[in-house]
């Protein structure tokens, strides 16, 4: 998910060309108080006019507790944003309050109620404690994300390169996401020039179970994609597992075997997921398969 500041028209006009899966237009922390009104108008007009290809369009609005949040939500729903991202989510009630505003706006502007999705960003200790409640608070919620900067400040510690201070939060968010059946997205890595560390961190969070990572610069998109793209060996293995599974089903048998070993159902599911990722990242193409 590529982060795009909401007050920079130059960047907004073609943010989709870099091939990220989603674009997050920000009305919150990257916009100064004096420019909140102008940014809201810029993002509104951009969403209504510019064709962003296949990128999912997410907008990070200001919290409802600020003078800007309500109007942000109304404008962004009217503009047709696919996902509203709520920063600094602490309780399930935050989700419900936001959902109410979204629904009001959908009704007012003739948008099918329920069409606008939500994403919650957890950026503090209370949010981590309430992670599952937040993640399951609304059917509109598609993902829960971690915002590390504010979280660390809240924890009264600082950010480190290896990220031990984020361990608990990361684990909690992945678990909450899975329990609620939604996606989980990791926080940004701000050192744009340190690709090696970015890759290291992305590998680690992928292993933890995260579905994706936010990036702040187009140069970071490819390295993150590469980490999430299955290797050739993984793909071939997954294809073979699925072939064995289909063959067993055709035989009417519930027992799947490959290379003399039994394959459990979870392994088959994991293989399906691997192939999904492979297609999504264009590591293989369905039309190429023999």
């Amino acid at each position: 998910m590529l982060f795009v500041p909401g007050n920079n028209p130059g960047m907004m006009s073609d943010a989709h060309i870099y091939g990220s899966d989603a674009l997050m237009f920000d009305l919150e922390d990257s916009v100064t108080l004096r420019e909140k009104d102008a940014a809201r108008l810029l993002v509104y007009h951009a969403l209504k006019t510019i064709h962003y290809g296949e990128c999912e369009r997410v907008v990070r609005v200001n919290p409802l507790s600020t003078p800007f949040g309500k109007l942000d939500i109304e404008a962004m729903v009217a503009a047709g944003a696919e996902v509203i991202r709520l920063p600094k989510t602490e309780t399930a009630q935050d989700i419900l309050d936001t959902e109410a505003e979204i629904e009001r706006a959908e009704q007012k502007y003739g948008i099918p109620v329920g069409q606008t999705r939500m994403m919650a960003a957890v950026e503090g200790a209370l949010g981590v404690v309430n992670a599952y409640k937040i993640a399951s608070a609304s059917p509109r919620l598609v993902a829960i994300a971690l915002g590390a900067e504010d979280y660390c400040a809240n924890l009264k510690t600082s950010r480190s390169l290896e990220g031990s201070e984020l361990q608990y939060a990361r684990g909690a968010i992945v678990v909450a996401a899975r329990a609620a059946g939604i996606d989980c997205i990791d926080t940004v890595f701000s050192d744009v020039n340190n690709e090696e560390q970015l890759v290291k961190e992305t590998r680690m969070i992928k292993q933890l179970g995260f579905d994706g990572k936010s990036v702040i610069n187009p140069r970071q998109i490819k390295p993150v994609h590469r980490v999430f793209t299955p290797t050739h060996e993984e793909i071939v293995k997954a294809q073979r597992i699925l072939a064995a599974s289909e063959e067993a089903a055709a035989r009417g048998s519930g027992v799947v075997a490959l290379d003399g070993k039994m394959i459990d159902r979870p392994v088959v599911i994991r293989a399906e997921r691997t192939l999904e990722l492979a297609y999504a990242s264009r590591a293989v193409f369905e039309e190429d398969e023999v």
Partner: peptide, 9 residues
């Protein structure tokens, strides 16, 4: 600036 930016400003 593109038209959408002009309208927003």
């Amino acid at each position: 600036a593109l038209d959408c930016t002009i309208r927003a400003r």
